[in-house]
Design a protein around this nucleic acid. Structure first.
Lengths: 199, 199
DNA sequence: GCAAGGACTGAATGGTGGTTCACTTCTTGC
DNA sequence: GCAAGAAGTGAACCACCATTCAGTCCTTGC
């Protein structure tokens, strides 16, 4: 027993793991999932291809984690913005503004997270991303219904449909790189109507 | 000049082409796009793999046409159902009922058309599918706004968002194979609110 | 029947890119 | 310094599957 991994090594390993994830994210933001060969990720992270496999059993596992990380970051940002508002209507405005604003800031990444073709195993992670948004929105809707601000409705169905509406409405602008000036206010009006916010 | 293709041969060629498309559709309906290797399609159509390439330059071209055919069929069915109603509200009810009803009838095919990972070239065809739905809905919305049934709004944005809402709301039920009994009525209520249909 | 030329065949080809593994380099405890 | 064992390397491997093509069969006009 002449070797047992020590704290210093563990820290280096975990740093290396983080660097691989960060490299994958950077490539996604620059060239989409399509540009993310394992070799390219390894090179950008400054390690050999084989090293990637010391941290992740398969490419799909690596990207499941990449998607999870990126998604969590997005959902957290949206949740934080919404939490600073008082009414359901204002909360949903914050959701749309934050979601759309961040997506337009990194359109390639947003497209990869939302809609780009990926392996099925990674696609599954995308579902949890959308569900996380839906849960977040459902919470605000349920509170709005409870307080009487919104009419009676199934908060989960409403939230799911709104996530779809939001994502679909962003796909066009993401492809173009910018949204027309009226898009986001119009989208907010649409969503307020859909929630039953009284005018 | 001892051979020039005659009507009979042209008919056989076109029949063969149709059979290849039909075979691809059947495999999609059974095993999704993932099960659609060229060899599998050829076998089901009763031709050799090479023959597929006498009709389509690449696999992507074949599936672009398959998607176009299947999408057109869906959009036509929805358009027909909507055309039989008089008000925008009733037209949208028909859209939801027809879209959701048909999707639940062939969940695997619906999933492939809506959301399954496919090559980028085929993905482009999916966009036109969604745009066709959006255009259809936008027409009814614009008419509703013009007649005063619906409040002022950007019909195209509304329609795009509704397509997203509809698709997203169906993904869960499609995975499960059935929708809960309240899902479709609730979805119709949601969409009526979003349109601004007066209660 | 026959020559010309298209249609059909399906085994072989080739490109891609994820994954492996024999080898090298580094770390640890003594 | 040294042995034991882990981490790191990257060229080679391999599975998969779209695509090709040389050979065969079929259709046509005479």
């Amino acid at each position: 027993m002449a070797y047992r991994s020590t704290e210093r090594v563990k820290a280096r390993l975990s740093a290396s793991r983080e660097r691989i994830i960060a490299a994958a994210l950077e490539i996604m933001a620059g060239h989409g999932y399509a540009g993310c060969s394992v070799a390219a990720v390894a090179e950008r992270a400054g390690v050999a291809t084989g090293t990637v496999y010391r941290h992740f059993p398969t490419k799909a596992d690596l990207f499941a984690e990449v998607f999870r990380t990126a998604s969590q970051r997005e959902v957290d940002a949206v949740a934080r913005a919404a939490a600073q508002r008082a009414t359901a209507a204002a909360q949903m405005s914050a959701v749309v503004e934050t979601f759309a604003g961040r997506a337009l800031q990194s359109p390639r990444l947003a497209y990869a997270l939302l809609a780009e073709p990926v392996d099925p195993a990674v696609d599954a992670e995308r579902l949890t991303f959308r569900r996380a948004y839906a849960d977040l929105i459902a919470g605000h809707v349920a509170a709005g219904v409870a307080s009487g601000e919104l009419p009676a409705q199934d908060p989960h169905l409403t939230a799911t449909a709104l996530v779809g509406a939001l994502a679909e409405a962003m796909v066009g602008p993401l492809a173009a790189g910018v949204a027309g000036p009226g898009t986001i206010p119009d989208l907010i009006r649409f969503i307020h109507r859909a929630l039953g916010v009284s005018p």
